[in-house]
């Protein structure tokens, strides 16, 4: 009887922990979930998402620069006496930062706060174009203006009006 009582007592002890074990179990479960979610947030926002944003920004930057170069090139008419004014659309920001497109040394360069975004694309313009100058701000409308001067034609990147 005593043996069975002791055994019963042991079992009863286990059973009495049941209430406690439920609390511990639930706390453990909640802890695991909280830990898991915080780890997930840490991994995603600490490394993966910024990396994706940077990659997207760099790709978009290259694409915008390439499109701009083609736009500038096609804005110059074949006739050496012809002038032109062409409007160009630029995204207002890349990777949540404004940027500039600058003409220098017969090429277009993109200036962005993030050094991974940007680059330089050479421009091939007709031989009578003497120089290309000016710059575009992403926040202002972009205009290419081709003007004739006695020395030859000049291509200007300017801010236009909306």
């Amino acid at each position: 009887m005593t043996g069975s009582d002791a055994a019963e007592g042991g079992a009863a002890g286990d059973r009495c922990d049941r209430a406690l074990s439920a609390v511990v179990g639930k706390t453990l479960e909640a802890g695991i979930v909280v830990l898991y979610i915080s780890m997930l947030i840490g991994v995603l926002y600490g490394g993966v998402v910024p990396e994706y944003q940077a990659t997207t920004g760099a790709e978009l930057g290259e694409r915008v620069l390439a499109e701009s170069a083609l736009e500038v090139q096609s804005a110059v008419p074949a006739d050496p006496d012809a002038t032109a004014t062409v409007h160009h659309d630029l995204p207002r920001s890349i990777d949540n930062e404004p940027y500039r497109v600058v003409a220098r040394n017969d090429s277009l360069a993109m200036i962005h706060e993030d050094r991974a975004v940007g680059g330089e694309v050479p421009l091939a313009l007709p031989p009578d174009v003497v120089r290309i100058e000016g710059e575009w701000e992403s926040t202002a409308p972009a205009v290419v203006r081709v003007e004739t001067t006695p020395a030859g034609r000049v291509v200007r990147l300017e801010a236009g009006s909306r």
Partner: peptide, 13 residues
């Protein structure tokens, strides 16, 4: 895209 733009420009020129 940069090489594409350069190739198109060069062939045009």
């Amino acid at each position: 895209d940069a090489e594409r733009a350069v190739a198109i420009q060069a062939s045009d020129r």
